[in-house]
Design a protein around this nucleic acid. Structure first.
Length: 801
DNA sequence: GAGTTTGAAACT
DNA sequence: CAGTTTCAAACTC
């Protein structure tokens, strides 16, 4: 809970920044009109949200005509899109001028990017140069909105929230601030869109919550601004049971709201864009049915554009049922929120079960109920999380912190998920989808579908997904990831299977003598109870022996307070996802204690650093370190060109994969240090990879959440709060550097390695291009824009993975 | 699936 | 803190 408040606070600060920014002022000055529009928006928003929504639900296709908008919207915040569209359409009728403008803006922006099709543009991440205010403005607002909503987004969200609150008063202002941010977030509109898409889920989570809260209570709107993001989430969760309509409505309202604002801004900013829109407007304004089609088309386009990436699945889902999408969004949001909780297991199996459940009776309620149950369970179980078998979510919460490490180590799951995310360019969203998977929300078909593919990917790279995954892997930096993903080898298969099992339940242990009461046991170390899949003997790590488990845990902690803390600590950079993230990023994730490898050259999972997807640091005592994620020397694989390339790829990929791990890693405290620490680009880069997730938002969050709870189990008690924490943490990370060790480690990492023992020549790290983020860590913000631009579409897609 | 290797965890 | 033992995962065959 507390965590949430900090986030909000942080958010608030960003907003202020925007307002303070000259750009913001300029915009304000420009927009006398804006206020009026804003008014409309707000009005429409409220009215639409409530009134229009029902219709939307009834007719899923209500989507607005303006495909471009929707596309973006879909891309950005998929679930809400339909609703929004519908609402937008309504709004359009009501306030045609505004709506049209927005549509034009979108279209224009798209045209600007590519002469034509907004979709294409959307798909394309690039277009940095385009930056004409119009384009950016359009997308940005969305992004901002989404970001705003999402707790994850530190800067952005905060800004958004603030804007949101302010919007009621001055939409223009809110918009303005966003614009500047947008460029940072995504160099181009497309990128922004992608990011939005990717992040959308995560953001959605946050946003959704906010929206819901808004819907439920007008006062809730204020909530955005209010620090109590957590509350909003809770409300969402609880509300999840409530008719999805609220979500939809809320989404629609928000979207309309955002769109309107954007439109206004856009218009103000670019008269030209408005003109272009005018030409397009007629189309967009077509009846609602057209809107639906448009939406679908846009989605399709999206899918097409992103098909290579693997987005299609998600989009298809959306297409399937707009209403469902609404629900899905809600679910996703909920899931995303819970991700951290569940993440521990990331159990695909569980997810599948959940999916099934969702499908069967899939209902938000189910989800919420699950969450509730989980929560309750968590509360009941002080320390440990149940294994996958049990309510994974519950487990996740408590044990997340520990699990994170373990999970990270187990990276398999994480990687898989990451891959998945990556695989679907838009896929980035996939993460969300993955989330959805986990989430009980599965009620939605779309979600289910997404989930299924994902699962398939996870299990085996299913043809579709698999291909994508492969591609992704190829694309993805992480040579490692590719390896893991590709794992067609029997072993790999095993792992997958195991992972599947693990993911289902989490990791499986095979303890024979430790009774699963020592850190030897991954389950115990992760703060999770052993479950069926475990092959352990004489296991005491079960709820039945809760007392024993807790007592043992205490003992171990008394010896080493950080024994259950995530082994891998990420720098806050990773967290910063949002726009900044990439730029900020160079997350320097490091192993807390460092490894002591002598024969594995830190190239095998024997090495905890490698297993955790992080580079070795000064703290490592390894010999002949060749850690692909970064050598303790500080050189990141630079030594070998291959490695470099791989690293570069890996950076992105690994980031994708690692994000989970990284997520895991982060304890609030620990994270902070990392942020502060200068990161070696290479190391950071990969570690940063996770950050991309952050950009994607969800993964990081969950990870963060999980990670945040250094003592996942215990943290679980706080459960939700932990999630909230996670978000705040990101921001905080940078600022705060709580942990003793972590910071040091990170620092050590950041600093060129002393190469204590390493026999290998320590080559200075070569800041691999991929590491962009990492390099920029110090001056994150300043570099953001550059980074975004520099970032390949791929990264942007994944939203930083 | 059995056996080996490896390095962390635990112990002294 | 260093050295040794124990342990279970990772890996190989």
């Amino acid at each position: 809970m507390d965590m949430d408040t900090p986030k909000k606070n942080q958010i608030g600060t960003p907003v202020s920044k925007f307002e303070d920014s000259p750009v913001f002022n300029y915009i304000n000055s420009l927009s006398p009109i804006k206020p009026v529009k804003s008014l409309h928006i707000t009005q429409t928003f409220s009215s639409l949200s409530f009134g229009s929504l029902p219709s939307v639900f009834t007719s899923p296709h209500v989507s607005s005509h303006k495909e471009s908008r929707f596309l973006r919207r879909y891309s950005c915040s998929d679930p809400s899109k339909p609703e929004l569209s519908s609402e937008n359409g309504n709004k359009a009728t009501t306030s045609e001028g505004i709506v049209m403008d927005t549509a034009q803006l979108y279209s224009n922006s798209s045209e600007l990017h590519e002469n034509g099709k907004s979709e294409v543009n959307i798909g394309e991440a690039s277009v940095e140069p385009q930056n004409e205010g119009s384009t950016f403005v359009i997308e940005l607002p969305r992004v901002l909105k989404y970001d705003c909503g999402s707790p994850d987004c530190v800067s952005m969200p905060s800004g958004v929230e603030a804007d949101f609150a302010t919007d009621s008063a001055d939409p223009s202002t809110s918009l303005v601030p966003h614009v500047p941010d947008v460029p940072e977030m995504g160099s181009s509109d497309n990128e922004a869109q992608f990011q939005e898409l990717c992040l959308s889920e995560e953001r959605k989570q946050g946003t959704v919550y906010d929206w819901e809260s808004l819907i439920s209570n007008a006062a809730d709107i204020l909530i955005f601004n209010s620090p109590s993001g957590t509350e909003a989430f809770k409300g969402l969760i609880q509300n999840s049971l409530e008719p999805v309509t609220r979500f939809c409505t809320s989404f629609a309202a928000e979207f309309s709201h955002n769109e309107i604002n954007n439109e206004h801004q856009m218009q103000i900013v670019d008269p030209v864009s408005s003109e272009q829109h005018n030409g397009e407007e007629p189309l967009s304004q077509t009846g609602d049915g057209s809107r639906l089609e448009d939406v679908e088309q846009t989605q399709d386009r999206f899918a097409d554009t992103n098909s290579n990436r693997g987005m299609a699945s998600n989009q298809s889902e959306i297409k399937d049922n707009e209403d469902k999408t609404c629900v899905a969004f809600a679910c996703k949001s909920v899931f995303s929120l819970h991700r951290g909780m569940r993440r521990r297991c990331l159990d695909f199996e569980v997810a599948g079960a959940r999916r099934k459940n969702l499908e069967d009776g899939s209902n938000n309620s189910s989800v919420s109920s699950q969450h509730d149950e989980e929560i309750t369970a968590n509360e009941k179980q002080p320390g440990f999380i149940r294994p996958c078998g049990e309510s994974s979510s519950k487990r996740m919460l408590p044990g997340i912190g520990l699990h994170l490490n373990a999970l990270a180590t187990s990276s398999k799951d994480c990687k898989i998920t990451k891959n998945e995310n990556l695989s679907s360019g838009i896929q980035i969203r996939l993460p969300g989808s993955t989330v959805s998977i986990h989430s009980p929300t599965a009620g939605q078909e779309g979600l289910d579908k997404s989930l299924i593919p994902i699962s398939s990917e996870i299990d085996n790279n299913t043809p579709e997904n698999g291909v994508q995954l492969l591609q992704d892997a190829s694309q993805a930096p992480g040579s490692l990831t590719s390896e893991e993903f590709n794992q067609n080898s029997p072993k790999k298969k095993r792992r997958r299977l195991d992972n599947a099992g693990e993911t289902e339940g989490c990791k499986r242990c095979n303890c024979k003598k430790s009774k699963c009461l020592k850190l030897y046991c991954e389950c115990f170390a992760a703060g999770v109870y052993c479950i069926e899949p475990c092959s352990c003997q004489e296991c005491f790590n079960k709820p039945i022996h809760e007392d024993t488990v807790l007592a043992t845990r205490k003992q171990i902690e008394s010896r080493n307070p950080l024994a259950f803390a995530p082994k891998v600590i990420r720098s806050s950079d990773s967290v910063p996802e949002f726009g900044d993230e990439s730029s900020k990023t160079p997350a320097s994730a490091r192993h807390k204690r460092g490894c002591n490898c002598k024969k594995s050259s830190c190239l095998k999972k024997y090495c905890e650093c490698y297993q955790g997807g992080v580079g070795c640091s000064i703290s490592c005592r390894c010999e002949g370190c060749k850690n692909a994620f970064g050598r303790k020397d500080g050189s990141v694989l630079t030594g070998t060109d291959e490695q470099d390339d791989e690293e570069a790829e890996a950076c992105e990929k690994s980031l994708v994969d690692k994000p989970l791990q990284k997520i895991e890693i982060q304890n609030n405290e620990e994270q902070n240090p990392g942020s502060s620490l200068p990161i070696t680009p290479l190391r950071i880069s990969r570690p940063l990879l996770p950050i991309p997730f952050s950009s994607k938002g969800k993964p990081p969050r969950s990870s963060f959440l999980t990670g945040t709870s250094s003592s996942g189990l215990y943290s679980q008690k706080h459960g939700k709060p932990s999630i909230l924490r996670s978000q705040p943490k990101f921001e905080k990370h940078v600022q705060t550097i709580p942990d003793d060790e972590m910071p040091e480690i990170l620092r050590g990492d950041g600093s060129p390695t002393t190469g204590i023992k390493t026999a290998s020549p320590n080559s200075k790290r070569i800041s691999s291009p991929h590491c962009h983020f990492g390099s920029s860590s110090p001056g994150r913000r300043s570099g953001r824009k550059l980074i975004l631009q520099s970032i390949p579409s791929f990264p942007s897609l994944t939203p930083q993975h």
